[in-house]
């Protein structure tokens, strides 16, 4: 289990002010990975704000975000939910033994055509 991070810390790391959110749900409306996520972008914003962080840290949702910034760009209030998801994800993978992607797993994921870019990106996103 991942112990909860304090809200303030996540807000500091992400630079996000969740109080700006007007709860319109456009982030979740535009999210391409919505169906794969247990918690959706708008929930990240409201749950971090209310300190309900542990479920987020223990959820696979943090690894489903594609960092495509659609939520950031389309948010009418400038909340930047993707940055908050990134902060939670970093809080998780930085902990000892929490790497989501291990070097040993990689060979099985590869095919002849996969670009290097995919591998480095995945490592940066999923591991310390």
């Amino acid at each position: 289990m991942n112990k909860a991070y304090p809200t303030e810390e996540l807000l500091r790391i992400s630079g996000v002010n969740p109080n700006k959110c007007m709860k319109c749900g456009k982030c979740s409306a535009t999210c391409p990975a919505y169906d794969e996520m247990e918690y959706h972008p708008h929930q990240f914003v409201s749950m971090v704000n209310s300190g309900d962080i542990e479920p987020l840290m223990n959820s696979e949702s943090i690894f489903k975000c594609l960092s495509c910034f659609a939520c950031v760009d389309r948010c009418p209030r400038g909340v930047e939910p993707a940055k908050l998801i990134e902060a939670v994800r970093i809080a998780v993978v930085r902990k000892q033994g929490n790497n989501h992607l291990l070097a040993d797993d990689v060979p099985n994921m590869l095919d002849d055509e996969i670009p290097q870019q995919a591998i480095v990106s995945a490592f940066r996103k999923y591991s310390k």
């Binding site: 456009k26 979740s28 409306a29 535009t30 999210c31 659609a70």
Partner: peptide, 26 residues
């Protein structure tokens, strides 16, 4: 209750992708 995130014209249709915040669904 929710917002539309993207409208994609495809063929004769407009594919509307939106969130339903009450049902927590896209």
């Amino acid at each position: 209750k929710g917002m539309v995130g993207k409208v994609v014209p495809e063929g004769e249709k407009l594919k509307v992708q939106a969130s339903d915040l009450i049902e927590n669904k896209q």
